[in-house]
Design a protein around this nucleic acid. Structure first.
Lengths: 108, 108
DNA sequence: TTTGAGCGCAACCCCAGGGTTGCACTTTGA
DNA sequence: TCAAAGTGCAACCCTGGGGTTGCGCTCAAA
């Protein structure tokens, strides 16, 4: 998990509109126009968000007739979650070690 | 996990500089000036990032003499990770159900 | 008690990016 | 075959926020 990738992935998740779109696609796949119909923004704006989400692998798109259906990739989100959890636990352990070292230094 | 909270939390993680600061604090606690010394930005800029991170509970700060020491809150990150993982798995399950329904409809 | 390190505003600059309008293209269905 | 739905650019607007400089405060150490 490189730092850059993590940052861009979370930047993708860090926009409220984008999060709403993702949640909506988590319930069921939909086209850009369908999404725009439920949201207070243009289809073009939705398109840009979908582009961002697809770039980080959180959404997959598939042409179906004259419309393009987008779906949320749950696996990608789960993987991100697992990575985050691991990093957080590492920090907790490290902090505990530092604390222990400090206490040991206090009473040599 | 409300949508707004999630978005703001990930927005906090979505900036590369902020992520670098977090990782640095995950190795060991440090003051804003110490952080600024390692980074290509001003202490004031670091301060703003720390403010954002503290607002979402990813960093805790404690005055020690004349300096303020900041540390990464691993538990908060782990919790976020677990939430993400859960949401992702929900999506996967839902998508599987939809697929099964579609196939059942195909052969009535 | 003076000096400098560390911190906290506040004002300012600047650009990435979220949003829009406008247009041209394909595909379905009547 | 024609109208309307769905999509894909491209140009443009404008705000948010990441970054800076500048100043005044506090507190530890000499």
């Amino acid at each position: 998990m490189s730092g850059t990738d993590v940052a861009t992935a979370f930047a993708a998740l860090g926009d409220e509109t984008r999060w709403n779109i993702l949640v909506r696609l988590g319930r069921e796949p939909a086209s850009a126009s369908a999404l725009a119909a439920d949201l207070p923004i243009t289809r073009q704006a939705v398109g840009k968000h979908l582009e961002v989400l697809r770039a980080v692998g959180l959404v997959e798109s598939r042409r179906q007739g004259r419309e393009v259906v987008h779906r949320a990739v749950g696996g990608r989100l789960s993987a991100l979650g697992r990575d985050l959890q691991r990093v957080g636990e590492t920090w907790e352990r490290r902090l505990a070690s530092l604390k222990e070292l400090a206490e040991r230094d206090d009473r040599p």
